[in-house]
Amino acid sequence: MKLIFAGTPVFAAAALQALIDAGHEIALVLTQPDRPSGRGMKLKPGPVKALALEHGLTVAQPLTLKTEEAQALVADVGAELMVVAAYGLLLPRAVLEMPARGCLNIHASLLPRWRGAAPIQRAILAGDAETGITIMQMDVGLDTGDMLSIHPLAIAADDSAASLHDKLAALGASAIVATLATLDDCRAVPQPEAGVSYAQKLSKEEARIDWTLPAEEIARAVRAYNPAPGAFTLLGGETLKLWQARAVDGTGTPGQVLRADGDGVLVACGSGLLLVSELQAAGGKRLAAREFAAGRAALAGTLLGA
């Protein structure tokens, strides 16, 4: 099938590779402009662009798809279908209607739950037992289009946003290939009106730990904000990031470090305790709790968060 592919990060690159491997003709790749990266802040192509160039595909990086010039790029291809995955730009109605069979989106949730920008993190934060991939016919709404296929995935108790992202990227890649293979037999189903929720974009400030919350909730936050923006608290007025933790039974003053040893840094919460196994002090590197506690003999008894 002659396709246009629109996407930018690793999640999208997995789908692009799968479509190439399946033998589809990728006539044009749309991706976000290169971003500054590294110490020198040199422009660096995103994963989709890098993969597309590796395969000799035509790449375009418009700042918007609302201009006549950008829309002409899409129209001139004469594609049968556009596949979109974490592209990052709004597709106007004119663009949505240009491919003969419209545009399909690979969305990382079981719609209509978690429409929007951060479905992976919001699912973990909410304590959802499962998530998945929805292949959706795009319309002008925010992830409101009819569903062509649904692919559930259980969320493991130790899944971080990073690990769940990788599982969903692989699932999304296989799901779009399977959907295209049976597209003529797919029946587009409207999303249910019940169960709609929105996955708002993450902010750095929301990742600051509130130690008065239950330990289970804080443990989910640590997993959801790993790798970005990183759950954090304050230790002696400086940022302390928490990368791995689990809830355990016990009581204490919220935010107080009860113990710091090779088993972990144990912190009291509003209910229950948080056993932290990986931490990162300001200006330092990520350390296992044993290494972190080794140089901080006075850590036990400290009150975090201030």
Rank of each mutant, 00 (worst) to 15 (best):
D158I: 02
G78K: 08
F292E: 05
A94H: 02
L90H: 01
A245R: 11
A52C: 09
Q200V: 11
P214T: 00
L19E: 03
R113A: 15
L299M: 01
R259K: 15
A86P: 02
V267P: 02
P192A: 12
Q191S: 08
R113E: 13
G7R: 02
A300P: 13
R35F: 03
A86V: 01
A156Q: 14
C186L: 05
A129E: 15
R113P: 03
P47D: 10
P47V: 09
A13K: 05
V95S: 05
A79G: 12
L16F: 02
A268Y: 03
R115Y: 12
P227F: 12
Q244R: 15
P92H: 08
D76R: 13
G255E: 09
R220W: 06
D21P: 01
D159G: 00
A75K: 13
D128N: 14
A126S: 14
S203K: 14
L65Y: 04
L57Q: 02
A50C: 11
A245L: 12
D139H: 09
V84P: 01
V265N: 08
L53Y: 00
I124T: 07
R101Y: 05
L51Q: 10
T302N: 00
K285V: 15
K42R: 15
P254E: 06
T58G: 00
L235E: 09
T131H: 08
P9Y: 04
L299K: 00
A231Y: 07
L287F: 10
L28W: 01
T131V: 11
T253M: 07
A72E: 15
R39Q: 13
A52S: 08
E217A: 12
L180D: 03
R290C: 07
T144I: 06
A224P: 09
A170R: 09
K44N: 13
L266S: 10
M147T: 12
Y225C: 11
L43D: 13
A79T: 09
M82R: 04
L73K: 01
S271G: 08
K66S: 10
C103Q: 04
I106Q: 02
D34S: 11
K285I: 14
H107G: 07
L19M: 05
I155T: 12
G88R: 06
I106W: 03
R259E: 14
V267E: 08
I106Y: 01
H55A: 02
F11Y: 12
W211C: 06
K204Q: 11
V59W: 01
H24S: 07
Y87D: 02
S149W: 05
R296H: 11
